Simulated assay, not measured.
Amino acid sequence: MAMRSPLPVRDGVGATRLHVPRTGPWATIADYMVERFFHLDADVLRERFDRGEIVSITGAALARDTPLGAEEFVWYYREPPVETPLPVVEEILHIDDDLIVLDKPHFLPTTPGGRYLQNSALVRLRNRLDNPDIAPIHRLDRPTAGLLLFSARPVTRGAYQLLFENRQVEKVYEAVSDLPEAWDPDAPALAGRAFPLIYRNHIEKLRGTVRVTVDDEREPNTETLIELLGFDEHVLHTLLRPHSGKMHQLRVHLAALGAGIRNDSFYPDLLDEMPDDYDRPLQLLARELRFIDPLSGKPREFRTRRTLQDAPGGETP
């Protein structure tokens, strides 16, 4: 069971939990945090203890001289960064007592992180609906647009999360890639494989890396069915049905087949980080979600209203 925060959600953002070692070369919890967050001003951090902003699991404020070992976890609110609002707008497609379906735009992160707090789908939803209990059931990469499911209340959240854990949700994506070299319009194929095709490999996300790694020597842990939607003289339009849900899976699979998704700065090559170019979003869209509702037993189906701007003809089939 998840550990419940002693601090309430504030401005749509939950408190941060920090694990503190029981033993070590630090006399106090404050000393550990000063070293742990070396990039922050030590005096400012200690003043946060003096103001009662660092608390234990009971919600009791910790002092700057609270000894190491007194608490295993502490909670605090992150100092909010100065954020420039993202010029993108999300749309709620469905809402009931238990489930919220959001149509996420490109560039909006699913959850707070890094320089994005208020500019995240989760915080925007919590503030918009005045519901601090909203939580994501699954996630999309920040560059990816399309369908996102959120739980509206904790009591039924686990039932929907299990659908994804047990691969009982049919997920459909679409992507646009530059037309591969040597493309034969009379015999459409990727890397010599005719459509529809299934691609598998083993991918893993290692700590401290921004991309996943591919290990062709290990048993595949990812699988995607790739179908042809269309093409023109410039681009290829594909439908993607992932059987697994590993990080960056669809981006890696298309890149491995010589059809890297348009405007992808990670695959096949990692490009230098640049400011967001809102005229060139990643051409990947979470298009459809289907599942049997675990509460009602009835089939549920949702479809995005968004389209990929580079799709042939400018429209989604």
Score class of each variant (00 low, 15 high):
G297Y: 01
L284R: 06
K298D: 12
L236R: 11
P85Y: 05
R17Q: 14
S244Y: 06
F231A: 10
L271P: 07
P312Q: 11
L149D: 03
R139H: 07
A191M: 09
T213W: 05
R64N: 11
S5I: 12
V214C: 00
V13S: 04
G24F: 00
L254N: 02
E90Q: 07
Y267P: 04
Q118M: 09
R218Q: 09
R306L: 02
V44R: 13
D97R: 13
L149M: 06
N201W: 11
Q168S: 05
L122A: 14
A15H: 15
D133T: 15
I137N: 03
A121R: 05
P281R: 03
Y32N: 14
L229I: 10
R64F: 08
V89W: 04
R280L: 03
P8Q: 10
E301R: 15
H248R: 10
M3E: 12
D65W: 07
L250V: 06
D41F: 05
R22P: 10
R4N: 08
L129F: 12
H39E: 15
V212K: 15
H138Y: 01
F266E: 15
Q168P: 04
R305N: 07
M247H: 08
A187S: 15
G52A: 13
K246M: 13
I198E: 15
N221P: 10
W75N: 13
L282C: 13
R193C: 04
R51G: 08
G260M: 13
D276F: 15
I57F: 14
E315H: 11
R78K: 13
G230E: 10
E217S: 08
A194N: 03
D277C: 02
G59H: 13
R126W: 13
L206S: 08
R290T: 05
G146H: 02
S5E: 14
D186R: 11
S120A: 11
R126L: 15
L228A: 14
V44H: 11
I54V: 15
F231R: 06
V172L: 06
H39R: 15
G192I: 01
D178G: 11
T84Y: 05
R36N: 04
F291D: 00
E223W: 00
I137K: 02
W75C: 14
L86E: 02
P281I: 01
P188A: 10
L257N: 08
Q118F: 13
L68P: 03
Q283N: 07
L99H: 06
I226Q: 02
L108Y: 02
W26L: 03
I134M: 01
G260L: 12
L254C: 01
I54D: 12
R115D: 14
N221C: 03
T209L: 07
K298H: 12
A159H: 07
V214S: 01
L140R: 08
T156H: 09
V169T: 00
W26Q: 01
